[in-house]
Amino acid sequence: MARVAFAKAFRRHVDCPDATVAGATVGDVFEAYFDEYPIVRGYVLDDAGAVRRHVAVFVNDDLVADRTALTDPVGDDDRVHVFQALSGG
């Protein structure tokens, strides 16, 4: 089970509590999380299901490489962090 946590920038706009969900990839983990909190999906993923351009997703300390198909592996005790990507000032 992976632990999913959202940065404060998200919590201001939408109810997105930390949660522990099952899944072997970032896509699986998100799917499980959005099953529980469906309204959060649109804040993280775009219409095509890819990570929004200004959203950063980490598995533990590593930025995910596959932002489109979300195939980066997630281990049992991993943490999936969702941040606002910094761009500009």
Binding site: A9, F10, H13, V14, I39, G42, Y43, V44, D46, R52, R53, H54, V55, Q84, A85
Partner: peptide, 20 residues
């Protein structure tokens, strides 16, 4: 929301409360 996309809300009490 810019970074976090487009979101719509509705209020059935004249704007006192909103639901996404």
């Amino acid at each position: 929301h810019g970074h976090f996309g487009v979101h719509l809300h509705r209020s059935d009490d004249g704007g006192a409360t909103w639901v996404e």
